[in-house]
Simulated scan of single mutants.
Amino acid sequence: MLNSRHSIPSDLNTRIERLGKQLGFDAIGFSAIDLGATETRLLEWLRLGYQGDMAWMAKHGSKRTRPAELVPNTLSIISVRMSYLPPEGLDPIDVLNHPNLAYISRYALGRDYHKVLKQRLEKLAQGIQQWVGEFGYRVFTDSAPVMEKPIAINAGLGWMGKHTNVLNRETGSWFFLGEIYTDLPLAPSHMVAEHCGRCTACIDICPTQAIIAPYVLNARRCISYLTIEHAGIIPEIFRKAIGNRIYGCDDCQLVCPWNRFAQTSTETDFAIRHQLDRRTLVELFLWSEKQFNDYLAGSAIRRIGHERWQRNLAIALGNAPTQPIVIQALTQVYGTTTSALVRTHIEWALEQHKNTNNCTDDH
């Protein structure tokens, strides 16, 4: 077997955990590669069409749930957790309650996490190499067909919350996940018990009722999906519920009792950039494509592109209180944009402001 060439120290798991924490990971766990139960649930979820436009969820077939098909000779998975909640910034509830401000999901306020985690995972793998010699591995973080959440749960990093995010008693859910697929035969960690009990706070708070049952998310209704993954016209039935959320949605996490114990991040790369926690809808809507690209260089937000950015902001401005500055901004962009997608959403936004009394009553 491939792993027979490795000399495995008896305390390798402990060494990996220690090095991982030195590299900034909050927790490190280990799991085998059996994801059979996850595969069954995924196939049913796909059959029901809950993935929406995310065709990539089905694109790679069984590679997503059979790690050794994605990375041949994989025997074990190292799973890591890194908190991202910034220690400073406006209270997210205050932003949601201020209809002239733009709400951006907390994970996207700093530097793109993909680069941060991948670099640290690579350093972790290089450290392991010093102890075992050359070995086969590949690092991932929200990239390639990898079932990050079930893997993290198998590795003992938390349990699946009813909102489909991983939860941990000590840190809540404000964290990123990353993995190393490896041909090392590592001892698996112990899984942790679930602690959601009878709580349904996340289900009850969801603005679009996207959590259709405990542990079942219909992405087609989810504001994070609609504002980030969905490329086309956002259905009108969801636009009022979107409110001022222009990139993602954190409501299910904000209301979760376990996030009272959430740890803020000490990672400087996750610090809030360009005051994105307190920008007004109007100023962001008026960013040119160059400003969008310049301000959001190195940000996860940049991948949706300027067109979807303006689409999302047009909806939020349609939900904002009727003010001359709002009407002026919508009219200005409507007259200059070449995007039919943006114009469609501006038309809807302007329609919301035709009757000032109705608009202000909604807010």
Rank of each mutant, 00 (worst) to 15 (best):
Q51T: 01
F285A: 08
L19Y: 01
D362K: 15
T266W: 11
H195Q: 14
A329P: 02
A349L: 13
F261T: 09
R239C: 09
R81N: 12
L109G: 06
A201Q: 15
P145T: 00
D11F: 10
M160G: 12
L124Y: 08
I246H: 08
I180Q: 11
R311W: 10
C199H: 01
K354E: 14
R138S: 07
H6F: 14
A37I: 03
A125L: 01
G158Q: 13
I246P: 01
R47A: 13
C252T: 08
Q126L: 15
P9V: 04
A32N: 14
L43W: 13
S189R: 07
F175I: 00
Y103L: 10
E307F: 08
A187I: 05
L124D: 11
H306M: 00
C222M: 06
D91W: 00
D277K: 12
G61K: 07
E122P: 05
N259W: 07
P214C: 10
W309R: 11
K63G: 00
S105R: 01
Q51L: 02
G89K: 05
A144Y: 04
I237D: 14
F140M: 07
L157I: 00
T74R: 07
E289F: 08
G29W: 03
E289M: 05
S105E: 15
R245Y: 05
E267C: 14
P9D: 06
R81A: 14
I28Y: 03
G318W: 10
G24S: 05
G136T: 06
L177D: 01
L48V: 04
F140Y: 13
E351K: 15
P150A: 10
N355M: 04
W56Y: 14
Q291K: 11
H306I: 01
D294F: 08
D11P: 06
T336A: 09
I78E: 08
S10G: 13
I246K: 06
G318L: 06
Q130R: 12
G36M: 04
A125R: 02
L317D: 05
I128T: 10
S31A: 14
S10P: 08
E44K: 02
E267M: 13
L313Q: 07
C196A: 05
M57I: 04
L254V: 04
Q275T: 01
R260Y: 02
W258N: 10
T74H: 04
V71P: 00
D250T: 06
M1Y: 13
I212G: 05
G49I: 04
G172A: 06
D361K: 15
T40Y: 03
T338H: 13
L330E: 03
V80K: 11
P235H: 12
L217Y: 11
S62A: 14
D250K: 13
T264W: 08
G61H: 10
F285K: 11
D53P: 02
L42S: 02
I325G: 00
Y181E: 07
A37V: 01
Q352T: 02
Q328Y: 07
N244T: 04
F25G: 13
R239T: 09
A297K: 14
R343H: 08
R41T: 10
D26W: 09
L23A: 08
T338L: 08
C199L: 08
A316H: 04
I77V: 15
S105N: 14
L350R: 13
A27R: 15
R111G: 03
G298D: 00
